[in-house]
Design a protein around this nucleic acid. Structure first.
Lengths: 392, 392
DNA sequence: GTTTGTTAGTAAAGCTTACGAACAAACTCT
DNA sequence: AGAGTTTGTTCGTAAGCTTTACTAACAAAC
C-alpha cells in the first residue's frame, strides 16, 4: 500500500468542500428533520421562482426523486401552501402532468417602512411582493413611545384590512437593529433598545421580522429588482445609509451596524461640519436636505451640476475602498431620482472606476433602483417570505 | 378559529430563522448523509477545540445523544481519525469515562507560501498547525512554467520528508485565485489562469487547496491567533493585500478579488505614480520597497516618523470606509514588524477612529499578527483541516 | 384501430440516521 | 454494604430518502 493509496481511500470518506470550495464549519447538530425542512423550502423556492410546475419538473430541478417530491408536496398541500392548478396544456407523450403552484392566495404579508422623515408607510403585499393596500401615518415629530404607538396603530389599520391570514409582518427601520429585531439605536425616532419585534409579535400574534431599512432595500432589489447576489445598496434620504448583500445574505456586522457609511469621513480636504461632530462625513455632501439646500442657493445650471458632481465624486471616493475590498460588481442607489440619477450617478461611477482596479471588476455597475419608494416595504416582505417559507 | 390561530399553527410547521436571525436560502437538496457528515465534523470540531473528551462529554456539548456520538466515534475510529486515550483521571461518581482525542499522529499537512518576493516557502505541519519541518526554494526571478516547476519541486522535497500519510496540501498564492484553485492572475509570478490545484492534485494524488495568500493569513489568524470571526487582515509586503473574514468564512468577491485594496486610490490630494498607471494607490505609500526607500532617504528620526505616520494615515483613510461599511471590530496587520508596529500602526488606528463612527465599533482593534512569517503556511494548513475534516 | 414507447405519479420495501428505553459496569458517598 | 451516579452499549423505533415496480394516460407510427 503506497502512501498515496492511504490518502485517497481515507479522503473519500471525508466531507468534501462544497460548491463554493470551502467546507461548512459545523456549529450545531443537524437532524434529519432539518434536512426535511430544507428540502421543503427547496420545493417552495422552485415554485416561487419558476412558477407553475409539475411534481416531476420539481424532481428534475432539485435532484430529489419524484417520490420524495410527491411526499413533500402532499405535506405542503395539507398546509395549504401549495395547490394543484390543473393539467399541463401543451400536448406531449406520456401521462399529462398535474401542475402545481404556490397557493398565492393563501396568505398576505404586511410590510412596514419606518425610514421616512415625515411619515411611516406600510402596505399589504402578496406572495409576489405586489402591493395590495397602502397606509401612511404622519410622524409629526413623534419619538420614543409615541413613535412606537404610531407603528402599532399603522399596522393595526392594515391588519383590519387584510382579506387572508397574515404570513408575517416585516419592518424596515432606520438605525441599528440587532438580530432579534430590537432597534438598538435610531436617533431620529428617539429609540434606544426598542424591542420592536417582540412588541409587535406579542401585540399581533404573528411572526414579525425587523431589519435595518437599507438592508431591507437591498433584499428587495435582489428579489424583485435585477440585483445580483453580491451588491451594495446606498440609500440617500435624510441621512445616508447602506445595505450589503453578500451571497444573497444581508451583512450585519460585529455590532449590527454594517452599511452605516453616512458618517465615514470622505477625502483629505476637510469638509462641512456634521451633526455627529466630525467634519467631512459623507452625509454632509450627500444627504437630501444638504443637497437641496446647496442646490437652492445655486444660480446657474453649471453651478447646479458642479454641486451634484461634487456629491457624486464624494460618494465614489467613499465607496472605492469598499468596492475594492469586497470586489463588488454592483452598486445600487435608492433615493430621490431627480437628485441622484444623472450627473451625480455619472460622477460616482467615474470616480469609482478611476480609483479602483478595473481588472477586478471590469463590469462594475452603478444604477438607480427600479423599485422606487416602495423598496423598503417590499424588502420587509422579502424578510417574511424568506424567514417563514425559506423563499426569496 | 381566529385569524391569529391560523397563523400560529401554520407558522409552527415552517422553517424558523436560524441562530443568526435569517433563514437559510435552500440551494441544493440535503440528504440524511449530508446531515451525518455535518455531525461527523461536529464531533471532530469538538475534539479539535476542547481537546480530550469522553463520548458523554461530546454528547452534552453537541446536543446529540450518547448513542449517536458512540456511533459517529466508532466510524471515526475505524478511519483512524479518533483514538481512545485511556480513562478519565479525576475521580468522580459513576463509571469512569473513556477519553477520546483526535489522532493527532494520524496525518501531516503540507502548507505552502508563494507570497514571498525572493523565495517560496513550505512546511510540514501537524493537526495543531505546528510546524514540523521547513523548506525553502529561491525564486530567482522564475515566472510562468518555471515558477510552477519550483512549486512542484518544493512540495516534492517535503513530501519525501513526511513521516505520516498526508491529509492534504494547502497553498497560499499571491494574486487572484478562483474557488477551484486556479490562479487567475499573479503578475509577479507570470501566472494567468494557472490551474495550480488541479496540477498538484494530479501530481501528488492528495487533496490540494489553493487560496489567496492574504485570505490564508486571515484564516490562520482566526484559528491560531486571537482573531475574532469577523476581521480584516492587511498583508504588507512587496505589495499590499487584504483578506476578509466574515463570520469565520473568507470572502471571495464577485471576481475572486476581494481584499485587493493595494490599488485603491487613497485621499484626494494626488500621490506618487503607481506601477498600475494610477496615482496615489495605497501601495505607493505602504508597500515595503517604497517605505524602505523613503526611510533610507530620511535623515532624522523626525523625518522617519513623519514618513511612517503618513503611511499609517493613508492606510487608515483607505480602511475607514471598509471598517464602517462592514462594521468591522478588528483589523490585523501582517508584515515587517519594524516598519508596521509602532508609529505606523498608531497613526492608522487614530485615523480610523477619527474617520468612523465610534458608536458602531467602540472596541475597534488594530494590531500586529502574532503569527509572524509563518502565517500564510499555517493558514494554508487551516484550509486543509477545514476542507478535509470540517475543523478549524 | 392497434402497438410501441414515454411520462407522471404512487406503492412497497429497504437503507440510513438519530432517538428513547433499558441495562450492565464501574465508580463515589454514606 | 447499599444507594446513587455516570458511562457506554444494545435493542427497538421513527423519520426521511432511495430503489424498484407498478398503473394510468398519453403520442406516434404502423
Amino acid at each position: 500500500m503506497t502512501t498515496s493509496d492511504v490518502q485517497r481511500s481515507t479522503a473519500t470518506g471525508l466531507p468534501r468542500p462544497n460548491a463554493r470550495g470551502r467546507a461548512l464549519r459545523p456549529t450545531t447538530k443537524v437532524l434529519p428533520e432539518h434536512a426535511r425542512g430544507h428540502n421543503r423550502s427547496l420545493v417552495l423556492q422552485t415554485l416561487y421562482r419558476a412558477g407553475s410546475q409539475s411534481r416531476a419538473d420539481i424532481a428534475r430541478e432539485t435532484g430529489l426523486t419524484r417520490v420524495t417530491i410527491s411526499d413533500l408536496v402532499a405535506e405542503l398541500m395539507l398546509e395549504d401552501l401549495v395547490i394543484e392548478v390543473g393539467q399541463r396544456e401543451d400536448a406531449r407523450p406520456g401521462k399529462p402532468a398535474t401542475m402545481l403552484d404556490l397557493n398565492r392566495e393563501a396568505f398576505q404579508i404586511i410590510g412596514v417602512d419606518l425610514s421616512g422623515y415625515s411619515e411611516f408607510r406600510a402596505a399589504i403585499l402578496d406572495f409576489d411582493g405586489q402591493i395590495i393596500e397602502r397606509a401612511q401615518l404622519p410622524l409629526a415629530g413623534s419619538t420614543g413611545a409615541n413613535a412606537t404607538a404610531k407603528v402599532v396603530s399603522l399596522v393595526e389599520s392594515l391588519v383590519a384590512r387584510t382579506t387572508l391570514p397574515i404570513l408575517g409582518i416585516g419592518v424596515g427601520s432606520p438605525g441599528v437593529v440587532d438580530l432579534g429585531g430590537t432597534v438598538l439605536s435610531a436617533p431620529n425616532l428617539g429609540w434606544a433598545g426598542e424591542p420592536l419585534q417582540q412588541l409587535l409579535e406579542n401585540r399581533f400574534g404573528v411572526p414579525v421580522l425587523v431589519i435595518n431599512d437599507a438592508n431591507a432595500a437591498a433584499l428587495a432589489e435582489h428579489s424583485f429588482g435585477d440585483a445580483d447576489s453580491d451588491m451594495m445598496l446606498i440609500k440617500v434620504g435624510h441621512g445616508v445609509g447602506g445595505g450589503l448583500l453578500l451571497d444573497g445574505t444581508p451583512l450585519f456586522g460585529s455590532r449590527f451596524a454594517a452599511g452605516e457609511i453616512g458618517h465615514v469621513v470622505v477625502g483629505t480636504d476637510g469638509g462641512a461640519e456634521c451633526a455627529c461632530g466630525k467634519r467631512g462625513c459623507l452625509e454632509t455632501w450627500l444627504a437630501v436636505p444638504r443637497l437641496e439646500a446647496a442646490l437652492a442657493a445655486s444660480t446657474s445650471m453649471d453651478e447646479r451640476n458642479t454641486i451634484l458632481t461634487e456629491a457624486g465624486q464624494r460618494l465614489g471616493i467613499a465607496l472605492a475602498p469598499v468596492v475594492g475590498a469586497l470586489n463588488l460588481a454592483e452598486v445600487v442607489l435608492s433615493g430621490p431620482t431627480e437628485l441622484l440619477d444623472g450627473v451625480l450617478a455619472t460622477a460616482t461611477i467615474e470616480t469609482l472606476r478611476a480609483r479602483t482596479m478595473a481588472e477586478f471588476h471590469g463590469d462594475l455597475i452603478l444604477r438607480m433602483t427600479t423599485l422606487g419608494e416602495d423598496i423598503v416595504m417590499r424588502g420587509a416582505a422579502v424578510m417574511v417570505l424568506s424567514g417563514q417559507l425559506g423563499v426569496s
